[in-house]
Amino acid sequence: MGEHLLKQFDDEMNKLRFRLVRVGTLLQQQIELAISSLLDNNYERANLVIELEKKIDQLDIKIDKQCARIIALHQPVAQDLRLILAGFQINIYMEMMSDLATNITKRVLEMPDIQSIVAQTNINKMAKRLEEMISDILDGFVNMNVELAIKAVKASEDIDSIFDDNFKLINSIMIDDHSLIKFCANLQDINRNFQIIAKQGKSIAQELVFLFEAKVVKHFNIEDLNEIEKQEL
C-alpha cells in the first residue's frame, strides 16, 4: 500500500506489523526450542522456552493496546481495518501457542527419560511438519502471500492425521508395557499440545486469508480453499 497522508498513522501501522512479526519469530524460535528440548533432552533449551514465553506475554499486551489505540484515534477502514481485526486475533492465537509450547517443555522437564519412547512414535514427523507450517505462516504474513497462508491451513489437516497415528501408537505402547503408563500419559499430553498449536496456527493462517483477500474462510473445507487458490493464479 502507498503512503498514508498522515505519517503518524503509517508509523502506527508499521509498528503493529513489526510487533506481530516480532512475536511470530519469537514464537517460531520458542516452538523449535520446545521440539529440540523434547527430541534431544536439552534442559538449557527448555528453560529458554519459558523465558521466551515471558517476552511474548509482554508484547501481547502492547499489541492489544496498540490495536485499540489505532481504532480509537484513526478509525481505519478496508485493508487497514482488516489488519487491526486480524492483528487482534493473531495476537491471541500466538499467545496461546506460546503457552502450549511452554506446557510441552514443562512435561519434558518433568520426564527426563521420555526421549526413548518419543523415538517409537511419529512425534518427530509431527514436529517437523509443524515447523514448516509456522515458517509458511510467517513468510505468508511478511510477503502478503495468500498461497502460503492456504498451504498452512492445509498443513493443519496433515498434522491432525499424524496426531491420530501418534495417539494410537502411544496407546499401544502403554498396553504393551504398563510400567510406561506415566511416561505415555505425558506423551499423549505433548501430542495433544502439538495438535492444538497446529490448530491455532491454522486459525492464524485463516486470518491471513481474511487480511489479504477480505474472505472469511474459517469453516471452509479443502475444496473451497482450492477454489480460492485457483482464483489467485
Binding site: E3, L5, F9, P76
Partner: peptide
C-alpha cells in the same frame, strides 16, 4: 466500499492514501 472496495483508487482514497 468501506470494507473491501473493488478498485485500488477507492481503497487509496478511503484509507487516506491520496487526497
Amino acid at each position: 466500499i468501506f470494507t473491501n472496495p473493488t478498485l485500488k483508487q477507492t481503497e487509496d482514497y478511503i484509507t487516506g492514501r491520496f487526497g
